[in-house]
Design a protein around this nucleic acid. Structure first.
Lengths: 198, 198
DNA sequence: GTTAGCATGTAAGGAGTTACATGATTTT
DNA sequence: AAAATCATGTAACTCCTTACATGCTAAC
């Protein structure tokens, strides 16, 4: 079962699928990929790598570089089992996929995700955010100026994100009629094909 | 030391300062106040209340209501020690105050915070977000379309938040001192916290 | 009568942060 | 020569989530 901490593991596998990496470099890339809030610490990454080794998703190779004699780096490589696990998780468009952290990670690997799954994840994410807005619209008693302003701003942020998702969904649908998929997700002008309204 | 989990404790104290509350009600209000992401679970709240009891910040009173015989509710009240702790923490405008979660909580209790402290927290928060943007601007390499789009959107969100903070800072300065003097006699009608669109 | 909301908890388990510990290499 | 960056890890601690366990009350 994809418990919560699967996010880090999946992100590592996603990066290792492109090329083998050592821990230090991995951390930097993870922070670039997902590090908008707190930075990932080594005390978090290295134990995760050990777990993944035990799970058989990655293998480690001590890189003894003959030319440049840096400190021996331990390079991690993804295994077939790891590739399989990544593929199966990335295919799963269940509720776990539209959690905050998880969603960003899924999105980051969208180029390796089926178009249908992409769409489901985007829509799931959007309706989850919409629920949040509805839940919060039951506006509150006893809120002072600052609390009111805080909520207003938070709601506005969520609304913006909903619009962002809507644009992405439209873009996805727009180039869906082509079998090959994998086109730009950018807010492209809506192509007028046959409107497929729900 | 205000370790990380102090956020929940402080929020509880902030709410209890207005009126005594029992756990269930407390949870609902906390979720309204800070619950834009995940909802707070009882498994998290009740242990926190126990910790706070041990620390002497709150006391519990079993409310035996004679008129309506609901299940006995345990009502928590803030103690003088709790009030003192809250006051000292809320006064501290150190780096901890502009962390994501923490910042929202601080902001929610801004009406009970000194104007000078408010300003420092807002400015600290802003420069922290600015740092994030700078750190991320070194981006580029190895990012595909989706990753690029994800970063663009994230950066945009942070930029919006910076602008929001800038507006708030201006508003704070506006009704704090005009031209270096504290006692602004006229010209400064009580500006709203939210200086927004016409 | 049964579902939904009110109300309080505990136990197991996972995950992350901070601080500690060490050492090489590159840049200033 | 010092400082920054590269590089790998461990241990203690804290905290949260999930799932479990219980029982009352109101509404449908």
């Amino acid at each position: 079962m994809p418990s919560k901490g699967a996010t880090l593991e999946l992100a590592v596998l996603g990066l290792l699928q492109e090329s083998p990496l050592h821990g230090y470099e991995l951390r930097k890339r993870l922070n670039l990929l997902l590090g908008w809030t707190r930075l990932l610490s080594y005390g978090s990454l290295y134990p995760a790598l050990k777990r993944m080794l035990r799970a058989g998703w990655i293998t480690e190779v001590v890189a003894t570089s003959p030319t440049v004699s840096r400190r021996a780096r331990i390079v991690y490589q993804i295994t077939p089992a790891g590739t399989e696990y990544f593929a199966s998780e990335i295919t799963d468009a269940g509720p776990a996929a539209w959690e905050d952290e998880n969603f960003n990670m899924r999105f980051a690997f969208f180029s390796r995700t089926d178009a249908a799954v992409r769409l489901r994840i985007l829509e799931g994410r959007r309706s989850r955010l919409q629920e949040r807005l509805d839940r919060a619209r039951v506006l509150s008693s006893g809120a002072d100026r600052y609390q009111t302003e805080l909520r207003r701003h938070a709601a506005e942020s969520v609304e913006r994100e909903v619009r962002w998702l809507t644009d992405l969904i439209e873009a996805e649908r727009g180039n869906h009629d082509r079998g090959g998929n994998d086109r730009a997700p950018q807010t492209a002008p809506p192509q007028n094909v046959a409107p497929q309204n729900p």
